[in-house]
């Protein structure tokens, strides 16, 4: 498809104390793309994500979602289009039960209760968590919390999913389930992560951010084979591209 759906233009953001967090970022993400945002701790990934739905306002530059430039007037429709999954599900699940939490967004959209109930059920079914419906969030395991957090966003029927470290703190099996789930979504996906193997599986395109700037933007497989780039960006090849550590040991450099 040709129409541009996320467009970031020369975005800059300074912290209140004046430190530069984002230093002139520009990129365009098209409909249906899956893009990984990778980079060192503090490179500016999370800050960038917060700009994509207007949680932070840029110091200069602009963000465009679909046809709308992101302004205070378009904020509400943008937030409906861009679903944000936060890094810590405990920040996202603040209501007394899973059902209340998934219903929170649709109720805010002003939908009638029976329609809200349908949305809740569909969203929970999608993430395979319908059985958790009446549980309080503190009674969920890490993986269940993550799934429900995603459901809370899905219930808003967004076009774009923005995720911050979706696989952090998950055990390998739960991580695998989550990756399978995410790959089944047709949404445009923007995923900030340190889990490069997941990025390799889910995202055909990768943007590398270093100190608030984009240092590379291209095919994931290309970027993850560029050792020089990875080294400079405090990254390394995904484990699946490193070869078998036992039978195929690399010579130490």
């Amino acid at each position: 498809m040709s129409h541009h759906i996320v467009e970031v233009n020369d975005l800059r953001y300074n912290y209140p104390d004046g430190t530069e967090a984002i230093n002139g970022l520009s990129f365009t993400i098209k409909h249906g793309e899956s893009v990984a945002l990778v980079g060192a701790n503090g490179a500016g990934k999370s800050t960038l994500l917060l700009h994509l739905n207007g949680s932070l306002a840029p110091s200069s530059g602009s963000v465009r979602i679909g046809e709308y430039p992101l302004t205070p007037e378009t904020l509400n429709s943008v937030r409906r289009t861009v679903g944000m999954v936060f890094q810590d599900p405990d920040d996202q699940l603040f209501m007394p039960t899973v059902r209340d939490d998934v219903a929170f967004g649709p109720l805010n959209l002003g939908l009638p209760v029976n329609e809200v109930d349908e949305k809740v059920i569909t969203a929970l079914q999608t993430v395979d968590a319908l059985h958790l419906k009446n549980r309080p969030p503190y009674r969920l395991s890490g993986g269940e919390k993550r799934a429900v957090a995603i459901a809370t966003v899905l219930a808003m029927s967004p076009d774009i999913l923005v995720m911050d470290e979706p696989t952090a703190n998950l055990d390998p099996k739960t991580r695998r389930t989550l990756i399978r789930l995410l790959s089944s979504f047709t949404h445009t996906k923007i995923i900030a992560t340190h889990d490069l193997d997941m990025a390799l599986e889910l995202c055909h395109r990768t943007i590398v951010i270093h100190r608030g700037r984009i240092t590379a933007d291209g095919l994931t497989s290309d970027i993850f084979s560029n050792d020089q780039l990875l080294l400079e960006s405090h990254l390394e090849r995904p484990l699946s591209m490193q070869g078998c550590p036992i039978c195929n040991r690399k010579k130490p450099k």
């Binding site: 937030r79 944000m84 810590d88 996202q92 603040f94 805010n108 966003v153 808003m156």
Partner: peptide
């Protein structure tokens, strides 16, 4: 952060 997450969902 919670407040942000709430804002994100309207």
């Amino acid at each position: 952060r919670i407040h942000l997450a709430m804002l994100c969902r309207g």
